[in-house]
């Protein structure tokens, strides 16, 4: 009974934390982007504009829940739910700090890969169900991009798994008490970061929604809270990829003096800041260039990295 209660508490803590962080990211990204673009960003609502998120939330909750008449209604509504669900499920196996996790799974990493594969359905189904040409093109782009980059993401992670000998995220964190994986797995980390950003469809991999070309890509026809779910799903994805980067390569919650949870968040927000900095500084490659880069550069590099790690472990 007490154990169940503890689990429930953990669920509430993790869910609450993750959703709060995702919402907070709206403010965090807008302020950081503004800083790098010589502007102020939201600074009117509450201290430092922090309550802007609350204002935006209130606004979006009261928007009309509208489905375009030409859309496939059922799938159209399902798609944004799929992205939220898939990403939130992934967080179930993410350990925030010792004792704060929902599920301690010995195949945690595989579970996350499986769930992140699910998110592609959201954009493909959303693009398809919208019955609009821009959304369709966006959906197609996202399918091709995510299926490709998933491959390298999986392979790049295997280096860490080989080093640790476990798919369990807690094991992976604890194995880094001496040396963080970002040193031995430097290339693996780079590939994972690139593939991770591609998975979350962030600049420079935002081709599925490429504003200048496809208006808003697969979510062109979405509005109100359904759009909001895509939006929050994207931020959840960023949080997930950043948290995973920290867990897999930067020693998770480990660090001197400060409590583990603080370390974990400090590191995660630092990684998120890098993701936002990329958005502020890079243009968008063309679709064929993106694909060529993935298959011709990242895939061989990921395989080489795995090979080298395997050889090193064997010797």
């Amino acid at each position: 009974m007490i154990e169940t209660g503890g689990h429930l508490l953990n669920v509430v803590i993790v869910l609450g934390t993750v959703l709060t962080v995702a919402a907070f990211l709206i403010w965090y990204e807008r302020r950081l982007l503004a800083l790098w673009q010589d502007r102020y960003g939201p600074n009117r609502v509450g201290p430092f504009g922090l309550l802007q998120v609350v204002a935006d939330m209130i606004k979006i909750f009261f928007k009309e829940d509208w489905v375009p008449p030409f859309a496939d209604r059922f799938v159209f509504v399902l798609a944004p739910m799929a992205i939220m669900t898939a990403v939130l499920m992934s967080f179930a196996v993410v350990p925030l700090s010792p004792g704060i996790w929902v599920a301690d799974s010995n195949i945690g990493l595989l579970f996350i890969l499986a769930m992140s594969s699910m998110t592609v359905y959201a954009s493909v189904l959303g693009g398809w169900a919208s019955n609009s040409k821009y959304a369709l093109l966006g959906g197609l782009r996202s399918a091709a991009q995510m299926v490709s980059y998933e491959v390298f993401m999986g392979i790049s992670l295997m280096g860490v798994v080989v080093l640790t000998g476990s798919f369990r995220l807690i094991d992976i964190v604890e194995a880094q008490s001496g040396l963080w994986n970002c040193i031995p797995q430097f290339f693996g980390m780079l590939i994972f970061a690139v593939a991770g950003i591609a998975e979350t469809k962030r600049v420079p991999f935002d081709l599925p929604e490429a504003e200048a070309e496809l208006v808003a890509g697969y979510h062109t026809e979405y509005s109100g809270m359904k759009f909001g779910m895509f939006f929050v799903g994207e931020y959840l994805g960023v949080t997930l990829i950043s948290a995973l980067t920290v867990i897999l390569y930067f020693g998770g919650w480990q660090g001197p003096l400060l409590p583990p949870i603080v370390w974990f968040f400090l590191k995660t927000f630092a990684v998120i800041a890098v993701v936002i900095l990329l958005r502020a500084s890079l243009p968008r490659p063309r679709f064929d260039q993106l694909m060529a880069y993935g298959w011709k550069v990242l895939l061989p590099l990921a395989l080489l990295n795995l090979l080298a790690t395997g050889v090193a472990v064997l010797l």
Binding site: L33, Q37, D206, R279, P283
Partner: peptide, 16 residues
């Protein structure tokens, strides 16, 4: 032009 190619920031600098 930079924005058309997907770079978000330059347009702000140039408008300043």
């Amino acid at each position: 032009f930079a924005q058309d190619v997907g770079a978000l920031s330059p347009v702000f600098f140039m408008f300043v």
